[in-house]
Amino acid sequence: MTATIHQLGGARTPSLQPMLNLVAPEMNRVNAVILDRMQSEIPLIPELAGHLIAGGGKRMRPMLTLACARLLDYPGDRHHKLAAAVEFIHTATLLHDDVVDGSDMRRGKTAANLIFGNPAAVLVGDFLFSRSFELMVEDGSLKVLKILSNASAVIAEGEVNQLTAQRQITTSQEKYLDIIGSKTAALFAAACRIAAVVAERPEADELALDAYGRNLGIAFQLVDDAIDYVSDGETMGKDAGDDFRDGKVTLPVILAHSRGDAEEKHFWHNAMLGHRVSADDLAYATSLLRKYNAIDDTLERARHYGQRAIDALGPFAASAAKDALVEAVEFAIARAY
């Protein structure tokens, strides 16, 4: 019988701890690669990179690479460098995102671009992207290189697509899902899929892990977009209401706008244009999201994608790795509660 979101975890709060316990020794090796490859004769590079990399991130994406390799009983060590490459891609995109968004916080700390300046943040992001490609090339697999390089391109496309949709209150649900499928889910999918490549498993296993990661990534971003309005900066590691102030048209906003009356639609139009961004405006926006069940419906959509992620693991035999991967989905959803 396939596990479901609602059955998982029981009274215990789901966490990433089972996955972390599963891959802890290997994660130490990945962290050693990360530390080694972020070094440079230019002191600013490791200083700035270290500010973010050592900033308490969950390391969820590289952990997924390791856990998927364990799921497949892969006995080698190629995935250590590739997991580091995945984390470098992720970190580079965060550095670039914070410059684009003008963020004040990242992982509960002052954003790197505010400390070191936008030019340095962009350039160190470029450095980390380059390091990730070095690690891919060292692995020697053209298939791995194709998967991760394609993911990097898709992430960039998603960020540009999001930029074009910014402050556009008429953004459709389809475009929104396309954006998060690119900017977030693509790297989750690639991080999982490459484990099947290094384990030399059939394409069906590759596609199953790709589907698991992709659906987990979409669920993860849906929850992020919901809790931007109802959580706090300490919990999220970034400022609450950032999306609102930045004019990001996320699914909760799309739903509330579509269900609102003419006056409420006018408010959303002005808010997304940046004309209504005070604390009172954010409180009113949040009240509209609750009035029209936009937060709950977004989280229900996240549970739907989370269930699809769990279902994608169906072909794999029961194991501690599979349990940890299932609980990672439950953790992604539980962050909202």
Score class of each variant (00 low, 15 high):
T2F: 01
A11I: 13
R12V: 15
T13Y: 05
P25H: 05
E26D: 13
R29I: 06
N31H: 13
N31E: 15
V33Y: 05
V33R: 07
Q39M: 10
E41S: 15
E41M: 13
I42W: 10
P43A: 14
I45H: 09
P46T: 11
E47K: 13
A49T: 14
H51A: 09
H51W: 15
I53T: 08
M63E: 07
A67C: 08
A69I: 03
L71S: 05
L72N: 03
H79C: 07
K81H: 12
A83I: 01
A83R: 01
A85W: 03
V86G: 02
F88E: 04
A92D: 04
A92F: 14
A92E: 03
L95H: 08
L95Y: 09
H96F: 07
D97I: 08
D97R: 07
D97A: 08
V99W: 01
D101E: 05
S103Q: 11
D104H: 10
R107L: 12
G108N: 06
A111D: 02
A112H: 05
G117N: 08
N118P: 06
L123M: 11
V124H: 11
L128N: 11
F129P: 00
F129W: 03
F133G: 02
M136C: 11
E138R: 05
G140H: 10
L145A: 14
V154C: 00
I155S: 11
I155F: 11
E159H: 05
V160S: 08
N161M: 15
T164V: 14
T170Q: 14
T171D: 10
T171C: 12
S172F: 01
Q173W: 06
K175L: 15
K175C: 08
L177Y: 12
G181L: 10
S182D: 14
S182H: 14
S182N: 15
F188I: 04
A189C: 12
I194V: 15
A195Y: 05
A195F: 05
A196R: 05
E200N: 13
P202R: 07
A204G: 07
L207Q: 14
A208P: 06
I218H: 02
V223P: 00
I227E: 01
I227D: 01
Y229D: 01
S231R: 01
G233R: 09
T235W: 01
M236R: 03
K238R: 07
A240D: 01
D243I: 09
F244Y: 08
F244I: 03
D246Q: 14
D246C: 06
P252T: 04
A256F: 00
G260T: 06
E264M: 00
K265I: 08
K265Q: 15
H269Q: 13
H269N: 10
A271T: 03
G274Y: 04
V277Q: 14
A279N: 13
L282W: 03
T286Q: 03
N293T: 07
D297Y: 00
E300Y: 05
E300C: 08
R303L: 04
R303K: 15
A309S: 08
D311L: 02
S319K: 02
A320Y: 00
V326E: 14
V326L: 04
E327M: 15
A328C: 07
F331K: 05
I333Y: 12
I333C: 06
A334F: 15
A334M: 14
A336L: 05
